[in-house]
Simulated assay, not measured.
Amino acid sequence: MSTRAVDAAGVAHEPAGGAARIVSLVPSITETLFALGLDRHIVGRTGFCVHPRDKVQAIRKVGGTKAVKLDAIRALRPTHLLVNIDENERDTVEQLRAFVPHIVVTHPQSPRENLALYALLGAIFGREREAQRLADALELRLHEAAARHFAAQNVLYLIWREPWMSVARDTYIAAMLDLVNWHTLPDVRGGLKGAARYPVLDFDAAPWLAQVDRVLLSSEPYRFTAAHRDALARDPRMAGKWIELIDGEMTSWYGVRAIDGIDYLLRLAAAA
């Protein structure tokens, strides 16, 4: 009897076999597929799938994570489509079901849940050994983080400006930061999906702002720069707070990037 792997939507998938043709609509998943050695099976990606840089250039673009070109995907005749609950629109995915035989839904919500993601992809695409290597590397990083002590800090993690936007505590980003004892403010949770997971902020009506120790300006989805950092440092509402740029890929990309992401956060927190 064949082994089936269950995705984040509760759908069980049979092994794909050697003829798999994969389109990925998730940048971090695309990077992970390459890390699993699935290069020759990847036929489509989004324009935001930019890693590994030396390999993705050969893969056909099919639009963005939300502005997906359905006809471009249809022309590629994929057997499998990789999507994510947060990053892709449900209506688009439902339209793709009409002509893509297998849609694999992902939704890791914490660094440790990458272990299940590796196992899922490894089982579907016959890369169990490669998936286990990634799992072993991630386990080492998680054990290292758990063994170290970091002073608790409240952080404001900004992902957008005009309007200012941050992240709720039930996001993957917040779970990553928690590994080094950094806790996101405001202390809100937004449920499975929705705008509340990425709350809009009014600094003039934020009593919790006084509790913030550190302000982190992410490189994505808004690309904050040193000029933004310096301007925010001059804002009297930010007086006394440490303000710095942070690599958003290292904190928000799951899959294989989580391994280096934890290393990155451990170094950042150690230097704090």
Rank of each mutant, 00 (worst) to 15 (best):
Y198V: 10
F48I: 01
E128A: 15
S110T: 15
R161F: 05
G255A: 11
R45A: 05
K61E: 01
D263Y: 02
W182Y: 05
W253Q: 08
P236G: 08
Q57A: 06
R169I: 10
L179D: 01
A147V: 03
V100S: 13
W160M: 14
V11G: 00
V155Y: 03
S24Y: 10
R127G: 02
L121C: 06
A206G: 11
V200H: 08
T225I: 07
H41G: 00
P163E: 14
A145W: 14
L140W: 13
L117V: 08
V83D: 13
L115R: 09
L185M: 14
L192Y: 09
M238G: 10
G17N: 01
L185R: 09
F203K: 14
K66N: 01
P15S: 03
Y172V: 08
R229P: 04
K193V: 13
C49W: 10
L266H: 03
R197P: 00
V167Y: 02
E162L: 14
E130S: 07
V11Q: 12
C49P: 10
V50M: 13
Y222C: 05
V188M: 11
P78F: 04
T46G: 11
D202E: 10
A272M: 05
V56P: 10
S110M: 02
Q57D: 15
Y118P: 10
H143E: 15
A206R: 06
L120A: 00
E87N: 07
D170E: 06
G63T: 00
Y172R: 07
E14P: 06
R234G: 11
W253D: 02
V93T: 09
A152F: 14
R4S: 03
K241E: 07
E162M: 12
R4G: 03
V23P: 04
L266G: 07
A270T: 12
Y118D: 08
G17R: 00
R267T: 12
T65M: 03
A147W: 09
E249N: 12
Q95W: 06
V180A: 06
R197F: 03
D235Q: 14
V11S: 04
K55H: 11
N84K: 01
A72N: 02
A196E: 13
H143T: 13
I103D: 12
L140I: 15
S218C: 11
L232G: 09
D230K: 12
A239I: 05
G261K: 14
L185V: 07
A8V: 06
E162W: 12
L265H: 03
M250E: 03
A206T: 04
L266E: 03
R267C: 03
D204Y: 12
P78M: 09
R40L: 03
L36G: 02
D86Q: 14
